[in-house]
Design a binder for these strands. Structure first.
Lengths: 115, 115
DNA sequence: GCCCGGCTTCGATGGTGGTCGTACTATCGA
DNA sequence: TCGATAGTACGACCACCATCGAAGCCGGGC
């Protein structure tokens, strides 16, 4: 059948009002996922899944991105074969003021070898 | 042997500089523990373990208090047969600025039935 | 001295989640 | 059309942790 050339696989994202504190904390409690968020935060621009540095296999990486997306922490979209990732920082700040930023601040410091 | 009348069982507390972000997040990710911290925060004064409202057995409660103490979130001391609990809010604020407060704010809102 | 209430320790158990490899799909470039 | 590259779906495995009940300890009050 004539599948349009611009198939543009889409990705489902939760409305942040449907995301619970529990979900966000569960997403951020895993050090690998915190690492991903941190890299995304530092990059200052969207990053494709493959450009992240993480000590896990590709399939595990997919799992972590799914968790982050379902927790409303990141937004994902396809760009060719690549799946791009963006932080939903502003929305998160509105939904859970200070939460993501304080975690990222603390994560940055520990990543800097301060402790 | 002549054990002093003021035996005063003591409790070990970590220096907050020895506490990692990971530990704190793991402590706060459990809803029961968040509930305990929230009740302590609201009380405005020290509370003994037995005065908390939690849907778990006494032995499990002990476990949760241990986790919170080892994560530096609370301070504990004996007062007769009771074990009292205090929030180490100020210290936590210095070690992880905004973290505990943002989690508590969010927890308060969800507890208020906002979502 | 004795008991009771408050909390702890211990061991067992069950569920959940992070991990992987394999096989698969989708897109792009030659 | 054929690879090659990017990421996914699935199933299995394993470790960890929240949970409990039973038994015990400790301090206070009678």
């Amino acid at each position: 059948m004539a599948r349009p050339r611009t198939a543009a696989r889409t990705v489902e994202h939760p409305d942040l009002s449907d995301v619970s504190l529990q979900q966000v904390l569960e997403a951020l409690v895993d050090p690998v996922r915190r690492g991903l968020v941190l890299q995304l935060s530092r990059a200052g621009e969207d990053k494709s899944c493959g450009t992240f540095d993480a000590p896990v296999s590709p399939s595990t990486l997919t799992h972590h991105f799914n968790v982050l997306r379902e927790a409303g922490v990141i937004r994902q979209y396809y760009q060719g074969t690549a799946k791009m990732n963006t932080l939903r920082a502003d929305e998160m700040e509105r939904r859970f003021p200070g939460l993501l930023s304080s975690v990222m601040t603390a994560a940055t410091r520990s990543a800097a070898g301060v402790a």
